[in-house]
Design a protein around this nucleic acid. Structure first.
Lengths: 223, 223
DNA sequence: TTGCATTTCAAACATTTGTATGAAACTATC
DNA sequence: GATAGTTTCATACAAATGTTTGAAATGCAA
């Protein structure tokens, strides 16, 4: 009822500003100026600045998780209840990478906002992050079905590393570009997804789960 | 000359507080209280709060880089100028992981500070981070010698992924522990190092550099 | 229209924060 | 032991920030 206009204007302005300038640099006054609303409107509609940030993040997280689960479900259905490990990992890291990488001028505000989130975490967001675990467990379950012989520990590490590579690529794409002098094309999103999936899947499927790590630890010279 | 006492007391107190409570929550007044010095001492000795943070980070970064290069050099000497890829990667990620993981009560303040840095990056630190690239290039050079047949692009990605896995493990060790209900032992530092090195080395050495990615991209079904 | 609830607005509030100041205390040199 | 340079200290400053307030405006139902 009434006009959500102000509410949505604030949300849009805040996301835009946070995406562009980071959390540390954006004040309520910046936001209300961008949204053309009164300063008190934020507190009236959201209660506090932190709750505004939290709502932004929750909205985008839900979208991300929904997309991940959609891909996961599709992969499991395509494989009669047992998806390939590649497909599972692709469902896990694909949405993040697709959302946050690609040609800069084509990135949505939402994507740029999520990049910010991954770079400079801020208290209200950190609090919410912890709820992510239940979501990840669904992927562990699928992985268990996909790789029945593997120990859970290996699955956890595999998922962790897959997310690590995806996250860090989003977070530090600039450094990678500089380091490689542009030779690593961070705009080739699908290529990056395949790269991450490939490495993570290799980590999960090479060698058998129990013997891999100890064997290496004994075999290699300490330095 | 004169007493560096105040200076060092401030540095120590600041590092301790930042390590424990993060950058966002620690004010100059907290620091000077912890250090038992006057409020004005920080500006007198360091110029500004940002310069204090920068000095802390630079000091620890130099230590980290020195340690990395020491290990790299030792590995290259041991291999007559050509270190194994494992040894190179171990020199790259070992110091970070050794410094930042392990039983919590045994972690040094320096280590806990560096964990903070990796979690909540703050402007003065971000500015310095960009100088890290020259340091990483030394590892690329060593990798080039170690894996002569590989394209530079593959080396960059391998290094990037190795750092990604190490960094994210430091940053999100808590989540991994929760997700795995303790089954992934994040206190087993040497085991983690071998795990990261193993996966990164595998990514670098499996398949030949040029054909790997395209082959996968064509072979796999989109979902 | 009248009356009631919702929403907007300008202004003020209350803190918190990093930084600056100028005098006092201290140190070392001659 | 006087003097010059360094360091410490209490205090003040100035600016920024999230939040609150109470009145005005607006929307809506009877």
């Amino acid at each position: 009822m009434a006009s959500d206009q102000t509410r949505t204007a604030i949300l849009a302005a805040a996301e835009r500003l946070y995406a562009d300038r980071g959390f540390g640099d954006v004040t309520l006054r910046d936001i209300v100026a961008e949204a053309n609303v009164n300063l008190a409107a934020v507190n009236y509609h959201f209660g506090s600045k932190d709750e505004l940030i939290a709502e932004l993040f929750v909205t985008r997280s839900i979208q991300l998780n929904r997309e991940r689960l959609r891909l996961l479900q599709a992969a499991e259905e395509a494989g009669d209840g047992r998806a390939s490990i590649d497909a599972i990992l692709r469902a896990l890291v694909g949405p993040t990478l697709r959302g946050c990488l690609g040609p800069e001028n084509q990135r949505s505000t939402a994507a740029r906002f999520m990049i910010r989130v991954s770079i400079e975490s801020v208290p209200p967001i950190r609090r919410i992050r912890n709820r992510e675990i239940d979501h990840l467990r669904k992927f562990i379950t699928a992985m268990r079905r996909s790789l029945p012989g593997h120990s859970d520990v290996e699955l956890y590490w595999g998922l962790h590393f897959a997310l690590a590579m995806a996250q860090q690529t989003v977070r530090d794409s600039e450094r990678l570009t500089k380091l490689s002098e542009g030779k690593c094309d961070v705009d080739d999103v699908e290529g990056i997804i395949e790269r991450v999936v490939s490495v993570a899947a290799m980590a999960l499927t090479t060698g058998d789960a129990a013997s891999k790590t100890p064997a290496r630890m004994l075999a290699r010279d300490a330095r």
